[in-house]
Amino acid sequence: MEKMKLKILYSDLKADIDIIEKELEKALNSSSHLINDASLHLLQAGGKRIRPVFVLISAKFGQYNIENIKNIAVPLELIHMASLVHDDVIDDSDLRRGRHTVKSQWNNRVAMYTGDFIFARALEYVTSIENKKVHQILAKTMVEICNGEVIQIEDKFRNNQNLKDYFRRIKRKTALLIESSCELGAVVSGVDEKNVRHLKQFGYFVGMSYQIVDDILDFTSTDKELGKPAGSDLLQGNITLPILLLKDHPTIKHFIAQASKGQVTEQQRLEMLNVVRNSDAIKQSIAISNGYLRKALKEVDALPDHPMKKKLRDVALFIGKRKF
Rank of each mutant, 00 (worst) to 15 (best):
E2K: 12
L6R: 05
L6C: 05
K7C: 01
K7E: 15
I8Q: 13
S11H: 09
K14I: 06
A15G: 05
I17A: 06
A27K: 01
N29K: 15
L34P: 02
N36D: 15
L42M: 14
G46H: 12
I50L: 15
R51I: 02
V53C: 09
V53H: 02
L56A: 11
I57M: 13
A59G: 15
K60F: 09
Q63R: 13
I66K: 10
E67W: 03
N68E: 14
A73F: 08
V74H: 06
L78G: 03
M81H: 00
A82N: 03
H86D: 01
I90E: 03
I90K: 04
S93P: 05
S93K: 10
L95P: 01
R99E: 13
V102I: 15
V102C: 05
S104C: 11
R109Q: 14
R109T: 13
A111N: 11
M112D: 01
T114Y: 08
G115E: 11
T127S: 15
Q136P: 00
M142D: 00
E144W: 00
E154C: 05
F157N: 02
R158Y: 08
N159T: 11
N160H: 15
Q161D: 03
Q161M: 15
N162Y: 06
K164N: 14
F167N: 07
R168C: 09
K173N: 08
E179T: 10
E179W: 02
K194L: 12
H198P: 01
K200C: 09
G207R: 04
Y210Q: 06
I212D: 01
V213L: 10
V213K: 13
I216H: 02
I216Q: 02
K224I: 11
G231I: 01
I239H: 05
L246Q: 09
T251F: 04
T251N: 10
K253E: 12
I256M: 04
A259G: 07
A259K: 00
S260H: 06
Q263D: 14
T265S: 15
R269D: 00
N274R: 12
R277P: 09
N278P: 04
I282M: 04
K283P: 00
S289C: 06
N290I: 00
G291L: 01
Y292M: 09
E299C: 15
H306S: 13
M308D: 13
M308I: 02
L312F: 10
D314K: 11
I319P: 00
K321C: 02
K323C: 02
